[in-house]
Amino acid sequence: MTDTPLLIADGLSKNYGNRIGCRDVSLEVYPGEVLAVVGESGSGKSTLLGLLSTELEPSAGRVSYRLRDGRLADLASLGAAEKRLLMRTDWGFVRQNPADGLRMAVSAGGNVGERLMAVGWRHYGHIRDEALDWLAKVEIAGDRIDDDPRAFSGGMRQRLQIARNLVTRPRLVFMDEPTGGLDVSVQARLLDLIRGLVAELGLAVIIVTHDLAVARLLSHRMVVMRHGRVIETGITDQVLDDPREPYTQLLVSSVLAA
């Protein structure tokens, strides 16, 4: 972990008409660090993820990102081309519903290879080798490379989505409830895989989840959201084991101990 932040959010707010999506959120994410954003449905955590990843435009505030050349750029000041290049090379986005993050009619190999082709790879054999390598990393058998994700189970689809996102070696990955909707045993495998890849690749991750066990297993630091505001932050085990805010205490006490 280095001491210059990779991403800085400053006073982010988002209104949907009179409804507040997110209010005055400031946070920093450092290289190699996993930050969990937790809260119940409607707490604003998905809105925050949308703002951080520039998929949503803030009503106020800004997001800055340290580019590979070391320059800290206000993301709103980047041109569309620069922003898209950033998103398909330096960033990843793993969605809760794999159908939103994958091309369901394109083979597994094509899904993984797309980002490579987007950054100029033009050798079929090399693209395929790289895709095979990444399928192995996410524990998908090589002989499934030509199958499309419609033939995959939910867990496999999520692993494929991860491979598709990581193939260009991004530095920052956004994850929106990546284990939502999966069976518990499948969740455990996926979490372990994410945990391993994050450590191996030194990824920074911003993960939105309502599952405190996921936050505990994956994240270094945590942000608790309620009604669009950050109400508590800290080291993950500190927030979970000694929650200060009434709402956080409620969240923590609502979890069935395993």
Binding site: A80, A81, R84, R103, V106, S107, G109, G110, G113, E114, R115, L116, M117, A118, V119, R122, Y124, I127, R128, I145, D146
Partner: peptide
């Protein structure tokens, strides 16, 4: 339209990739 505007043609090669794969 965005893809054309930014000359992002990786997707076109995905189609050709799929051809070769299949």
């Amino acid at each position: 339209r965005q893809l054309h505007a930014l000359a992002e043609y990786g997707l076109m090669h995905v189609k050709l990739y799929e051809d070769i794969a299949r």
